[in-house]
Design a protein around this nucleic acid. Structure first.
Lengths: 225, 225
DNA sequence: GCATACACGTGACAC
DNA sequence: TGTGTCACGTGTATG
């Protein structure tokens, strides 16, 4: 049976036709040289596969899943992992607790309860340090109808940054009221920053008594929410 | 030229032998059924490749490198990215400011100045909240010859975690003294944790006056280092 | 022409 | 049994 005749048999099956063509071609031009070239080619490809698969193995270990996993699923998992890590990394460094050189106030809506319209807010303030800062913050929290869920304070080189997690009280059912609250919080915090830059000096004698009082309030309520 | 004879020509080249054998076999058992099966098989494989490659593309975008990149190199890059992100993420969440449910005290040497033997320490304490915790911490910092460079405090659900960056004063030239300082810091902080668990209740009347005093001290010196 | 990287079809093996 | 995954050798394009 000739090669050509054999090819007739597989007819329309394009895949097999291709394969057979390859074989036929190889037969025609087959030399020792091309044979060696082919061998080296397949070996090169083998090495490439090994390189890639080694990385796949590393990723398998890194992504924790000690179970066996589809290559595709593994990649998907890695993608999620990277996204999630990126998120937490930026949240941790950008959003939290590294005081910057510029004063700033942020108010961000994290969640909104559709039923009662209550809000979950994250707000931050960054400004110069001063002794009565904590009492001012405490007072600001009293001035708006919010509940303090969590507070973090960090200082670095004479600068202070504080991040708060706030919940609006449940009675605020209107969207207007919500936005008003966010605005109120922002205003209250901004006033504190402005006060810092406005009165760089203060009368120790006058402020200390009030400060002690208020700081002790902040202390007991902020540390024991 | 028969198929068998053709095979003779390629002789030792095992790859081609295999391929030709495949062809031969296919010729013998070739039916419409197996042809359809093969077709579906190759299509399935094609879809699998597309799935994987789509994930590769996503990773390319995620790793930011807008340039073209080897698959292997891309995977290596991803591995580095994951490792690095993991590092910063754990540093941000584990080392900093997320109170855990278990009491703990940590003292870690970050840097050592070879010239004057001064140390840079990072220490943390995690325990239940209580009003006079801050004053106790302040007192502890006074009891050891260290300089407070940075302090962070975080609270969550009645728990508090505080992280300090400390520098030993430059006079301590002996290694013995260094280790002694690390030990002293650890002991001082441990005492605070023990005090918390020992006296879960305390007399508000007696403590409040002292607390106000000490907290105001902590306030002015911790926030304005 | 040589090297490198990718897509393809296919055999093998698993559940 | 099919249905899915993998490794392999090969063709092919890009430098």
């Amino acid at each position: 049976m000739s090669v050509k005749q054999s090819l007739k048999l597989v007819g329309e099956k394009e895949g097999l036709v291709k394969a057979s063509r390859r074989v036929a071609k190889k037969i025609m031009v087959s030399t020792a040289k091309t044979a060696a070239a082919l061998k080296s080619h397949s070996e090169t490809e083998r090495r490439r596969r090994e390189r890639i698969n080694a990385h796949f193995a590393t990723l398998r270990g890194l992504v924790l899943s000690n179970e066996k996993m589809d290559k595709a699923t593994l990649l998907a998992e890695v993608i999620n992992k990277v996204k999630q890590l990126k998120e937490t990394a930026t949240q941790a460094t950008e959003n939290l607790l590294v005081p910057t050189d510029t004063d700033e106030v942020e108010v961000e809506k994290l969640e909104e309860n559709e039923e009662d319209g209550s809000l979950l807010l994250r707000c931050s303030i960054c400004c110069d340090c001063r002794p009565d800062l904590l009492s001012d913050l405490r007072q600001a929290m009293k001035d708006v109808p919010v509940q303090l869920l969590k507070c973090e304070i960090s200082t670095l080189g004479g600068r202070v940054k504080s991040v708060f997690l706030l919940a609006t009280s449940e009675q605020g059912n209107k969207k207007n009221s919500d936005e008003h609250i966010e605005g109120s919080v922002h205003t209250a915090l901004s006033n504190i920053v402005d006060k810092v830059s406005a009165s760089a000096e203060f009368d120790e004698e006058l402020i200390f008594p009030r400060k002690r009082q208020r700081v002790s309030n902040l202390d007991s309520s902020c540390l024991s929410p």
